[in-house]
Amino acid sequence: MDEYIYSQSVHKDFHGIMNYLIKYLRENHGEKHLESFFKEASAYIYKPLIERVKKNGLIEIKKHLERTFSMEDGKFDLDYEENKLVFNVKKCPAIWHMKDKKLEIDKEFCKISTEIVSAVVAKECGYYFSVEYDQENGKCIQKFWKEEK
């Protein structure tokens, strides 16, 4: 991400609108466009981060996740080695914000955020990606890794 993003505070209500946009895209334009949009948008929006990862490795994803989740008071653990990163989300700020506001969370909110968005970033950087998520409880475990040659 551009450095400017990390120097700012957050307005969490936008998680609710993001949730709405996911539902809107699916209902009005179908799953194909929902997936297509998030893949295209992620590759473009995360371009600076992708470039940094290509240059410096997984440490850049680690820094990005630490900064982003800390800004929003998320709870997480990070297990990092040179070619492997395990991001264990114990309390997702987006899910819990929407629960606090009693919003109906889209069934694919976590899928879009992790399986699609994070996967695009990983792939663009040349890393493998997997995720196990528990949307109901706002938890997930995301793994980024490179195969040893």
């Binding site: 991400m1 993003i5 982003t68």
Partner: peptide, 18 residues
């Protein structure tokens, strides 16, 4: 100067373009 939740505005903008 404050900013919204993470990258929301950027995705919002990109959706308009899409």
């Amino acid at each position: 100067i404050m900013i919204s939740a993470n990258e929301f505005i950027l995705f919002y903008n990109e959706l308009f373009k899409y």
